[in-house]
Amino acid sequence: MRARISRRSFLHGSALTTAAATSAAAAIAGAAAAAVSGRPVTEQGREAVRLGPEAVRISLTINGSARPVSVEPRTTLAEALRDALGLTGTKIACDRGACSACTVWLDGQPICSCMVLAIEIGARHVTTIEGLASAAGLHPVQTAFIEHDALQCGFCTPGMLMSCAALLERMPAPDAQDVERAISGHLCRCGCYPHVVAATLEAAAVRRKRS
């Protein structure tokens, strides 16, 4: 559509300039040395690295293992996970930060993976829905989601689970309002919120009992 300006089109065709002084960019600077085609300077006067528009090779740490991947600078983390790495458990529903379906963890913090570029990740650890269960079995939130039927179509579910599991990491004994706050950015058209809250509270109780 002609009048549409998306993040994609905005970045398209123009090389991406990143401040080399930030930790994320520093991490990719080495990997992307071949793509450096000039020495632009950031607003702060620091030396910047210029990437793209063609694909650059980076390495992402996902669910505990290093995953080399080739992405264009405009590629979001969500796209890199789904399209380049085949980790399709992460869902995209709005692609602009409005629904939280694409939630993953970045160093343990839930973020919208459609709102960060893959090349910004650097050395930080990404955890996706595929990495939520451990060798020991499902995460207690996953088990509780099944038991409480906290999902219907299941499209919002991976993102919802990542936020609920992250909540339990930082708050072992949440109340209903805490859960509501944690998922307040998530949209579920099937209307699973009551069961999501109940499931998360139960998962918290189960976890407390276990530890």
């Binding site: 789904r82 992460t90 595929e130 999902l151």
Partner: peptide, 23 residues
């Protein structure tokens, strides 16, 4: 009886394949 969803596990692990995931 309130039996758990037959594809609940696939849905909570991200394993279930939606059309947007088909390649």
């Amino acid at each position: 009886k309130p039996i758990a969803r037959h594809n609940g596990r696939a849905k909570v692990t991200g394993a279930i394949r939606f059309t947007v995931d088909v390649t």
